[in-house]
Computed example of a mutant assay.
Amino acid sequence: MVSASSADPRLAPGRALPPDGRYLPDTVERAVKLLVVGAFGVGKTTLIGSVSEITPLRTEEVMTEESAGVDDLAGLAGKTTTTVAMDFGRITLNPGLVLYLFGTPGQRRFWDLWEGLAEGALGVLVMVDTRRLEDSFEVLEQLELRGLPFAVAVNHFPDTPRHHTVDDLRRALDLLDETPVVMCDARRRRASRDALITLVEYVSATAAQEVPR
């Protein structure tokens, strides 16, 4: 179990990170690779940037006229860049556990990159935008093909409808009852961290159930 109260490595007496956060505390015993996936423009880069304790690696490029008619910008006013390879960040959840976060591009034409990024990953955080919920269906299908456990983080934008319940979203996305669904504002470090904690707890519980007895 990973509790929110233990999510800051500085809570370990005498084990504070250096001010720049580049180095892990020597208490870390386990590193976990997680994917952050979702359709185009759902906030993957924003989430990794908000939660990463190091300067995140980004492969964003300015969108040009070449993407007109290919990338649907409906509901994404002001979006001028897109990830073309991956995002990368790191967060130390507690003194013994560090997460390495790999964000995938959302557009279908970049999905071939998922194969390499998914290698060694223990779980997936799927980001969803309820304004464009149908864009998430193919993303979820890709995850089913890979068989990785995942949690769903519903990212709130300023004009996101607030009347959807978790049960509504679970039915709309055809999720299993045990699949976690959390509400999230990817701009907020605490909200992003809590979504990752939910995923880690779910991955841990799933792994425990699969251990032969």
Score class of each variant (00 low, 15 high):
151 A>Y: 05
30 R>Y: 01
28 V>E: 12
190 R>H: 07
55 T>F: 01
89 G>W: 00
50 S>N: 10
61 E>S: 06
116 G>F: 00
83 T>A: 11
167 D>I: 12
30 R>M: 08
101 L>K: 02
6 S>M: 11
96 G>L: 03
192 S>K: 06
94 N>T: 01
132 R>Y: 06
190 R>E: 14
67 S>P: 01
168 D>P: 07
200 V>D: 05
70 V>F: 00
135 D>V: 01
80 T>D: 11
4 A>E: 13
58 R>F: 00
69 G>Q: 06
78 G>C: 10
118 A>S: 15
131 R>E: 04
26 D>K: 14
66 E>P: 02
157 F>M: 12
91 I>E: 06
136 S>V: 01
196 L>D: 06
35 L>I: 05
175 L>G: 08
173 L>Y: 10
156 H>G: 14
213 R>C: 03
156 H>Y: 03
72 D>C: 04
111 W>N: 08
81 T>V: 14
154 V>A: 11
47 L>D: 04
29 E>R: 15
71 D>G: 03
95 P>D: 05
166 V>I: 13
141 E>P: 03
138 E>D: 15
110 F>V: 13
27 T>A: 10
67 S>F: 10
97 L>R: 10
76 L>R: 14
165 T>G: 12
143 L>W: 00
174 D>F: 12
20 D>T: 00
3 S>Y: 15
209 Q>T: 07
176 L>I: 02
151 A>T: 10
186 A>Q: 08
48 I>G: 01
58 R>S: 14
119 E>G: 02
79 K>H: 00
28 V>T: 08
29 E>K: 15
1 M>S: 11
87 D>V: 05
175 L>V: 04
155 N>T: 04
206 T>L: 10
31 A>F: 00
211 V>A: 13
192 S>G: 15
117 L>F: 02
54 I>Q: 09
56 P>R: 05
31 A>I: 06
156 H>I: 13
9 P>S: 03
158 P>A: 12
66 E>H: 05
70 V>M: 02
181 V>R: 02
159 D>T: 14
157 F>W: 12
145 L>S: 13
32 V>R: 11
28 V>Y: 04
185 D>N: 15
158 P>N: 09
199 L>N: 06
197 I>Q: 03
49 G>W: 00
24 L>I: 08
65 E>M: 14
50 S>P: 09
49 G>V: 10
211 V>N: 02
94 N>R: 14
198 T>W: 03
99 L>C: 07
35 L>Q: 04
10 R>E: 15
77 A>I: 13
194 D>N: 15
139 V>T: 05
96 G>E: 13
193 R>I: 10
123 G>T: 04
50 S>V: 07
87 D>R: 09
192 S>T: 07
203 V>P: 02
121 A>K: 02
212 P>E: 04
75 G>W: 07
44 K>Q: 11
178 E>S: 12
35 L>N: 05
51 V>H: 01
207 A>R: 15
207 A>W: 06
122 L>H: 07
65 E>W: 11
149 P>N: 07
139 V>E: 05
121 A>T: 13
59 T>K: 07
108 R>S: 08
2 V>M: 14
190 R>D: 13
90 R>V: 13
88 F>L: 15
79 K>Q: 13
203 V>F: 04
112 D>F: 01
132 R>I: 03
187 R>L: 09
191 A>K: 13
191 A>W: 00
99 L>H: 10
14 G>S: 06
132 R>M: 01
38 G>A: 04
68 A>S: 12
69 G>R: 01
26 D>H: 14
34 L>Y: 07
179 T>G: 08
57 L>D: 12
